[in-house]
Design a protein around this nucleic acid. Structure first.
Lengths: 217, 217
DNA sequence: GCGCGATGTGACCAATGGGTCATATTCTGA
DNA sequence: TCAGAATATGACCCATTGGTCACATCGCGC
């Protein structure tokens, strides 16, 4: 619109790269990384198979890791943005995190292929035998955990939540979001658009923040 | 030792079947289902590849589902046994569940391949495009959730924990156990025997039962 | 329009691995 | 000891698929 920082060629190249990644994300999410074929990715992207290698010389694996980058970046960005907007300490801690959880659930419901990629492939590769990939995914998971650990630590410092290890708590919170999504939108039978972010966030927050024990305990 | 209900042939056949399943479990857990080859399974079991088909005519897939059966049976059995031994209502609810969580963590630490099979393959197939497999795994997950939902419902009926949906809470608890294990024994770098069941159970119980909010809230 | 570099393409290649089967070996009962 | 059943085996088959490349096409500058 305003300043053209990219030539037309660069823009088109970017758009084609985008189309390939989108096609690959859908395919990998549906069939799994091993079950997906480059032929199908190429077909969905409306390119010949050879073209994929012009954009991703590393082939199937390079495409997969490019997708991981984007998916994790999205989660880290959402987390960072959310908590930098919140004036921590001014709003009720419980509500701040409840709304965060709701946003995360919405984020993945709107991007189910992202979620499926994490469930199907990332979790498998973290425990895979290729140390390189395992390290990469471990690092990405840590990035997310760190982004969430900061506001948690802050709340702990203010004495609003129990002084546990913020990093571990962050992993637990992320795990609960994933767990809720796995539970709430199971069967890709198609009709599972029913998961309600608010309801899920309420449920998780009630347990994680208030505890299962009755108040009268 | 006492009554021979099985002939020698049947016992030996069972033992060979066992050897094949053990070899397959290790291989699948390490390489993943798709990444594992029947040649390697056969080699680890010290059989020729053809022999596998004498015991599992359905081939690779039949072996995988036989493993799923065993893994899920183990978890359901542990859960049922544990809660049938506990005189619910006589012991402190919090401690009963804390000890259960500790047992589950121990169970999987002692059987890491079982855990890896669930993480790597079950989670992938629940969302897979083969409805048959997805249904099967969904049902197995429900069995576990049901076994845990019963004592939870019982505690709710006694007013000891909040009256939420027991089934959903059961899924959440299972998810937290899995989440802790994923966090606590990452990198199969070999040195990860450090996860402490008691510590993990304390951590999970503190958050799930007492809540993150400080008591003075 | 012309020429050349950039880009697209799909037939092709080679490796892989699940599954089969003819043959060899072992076990059982008489 | 022997016949026949049960079992073990691994060479073989072939469908699949990631990756390659010679060639076709396109588009931009002149």
């Amino acid at each position: 619109m305003e300043v053209q920082t990219l030539t037309r060629r660069d823009r088109e190249r970017l758009a084609r790269s985008r189309a390939i990644l989108d096609a690959a994300l859908d395919t990998f999410a549906e069939k799994g990384y091993e079950g997906a074929t480059l032929d199908e990715v190429a077909e969905r992207a409306e390119f010949g198979k050879g073209t994929l290698y012009n954009y991703f010389p590393g082939g199937k694996e390079e495409i997969l890791f490019a997708l991981f980058d984007e998916v994790y970046d999205g989660v880290v960005r959402l987390t960072d943005n959310y908590f930098s907007d919140q004036l921590l300490g001014e709003n009720a801690t419980r509500e701040v995190f409840r709304a965060y959880i709701s946003r995360m659930i919405s984020h993945f419901i709107d991007r189910l292929p992202n979620f499926l990629l994490l469930i199907k492939e990332a979790h498998r590769m973290v425990f895979g035998d290729q140390t390189e990939s395992a390290d990469y995914l471990f690092t990405q998971r840590e990035r997310v955990a760190e982004a969430l650990a900061r506001p948690l630590q802050s709340a702990m410092d203010r004495g609003e939540i129990k002084p546990l290890d913020a990093h571990t708590v962050a992993h637990l919170v992320m795990g609960n979001i994933h767990g809720y999504l796995m539970f709430a939108c199971p069967r890709n039978g198609g009709k599972s658009a029913s998961a309600d972010p608010e309801q899920g966030a309420d449920f998780i927050t009630t347990i994680l923040f208030d505890g299962l024990l009755t108040d009268a305990q």
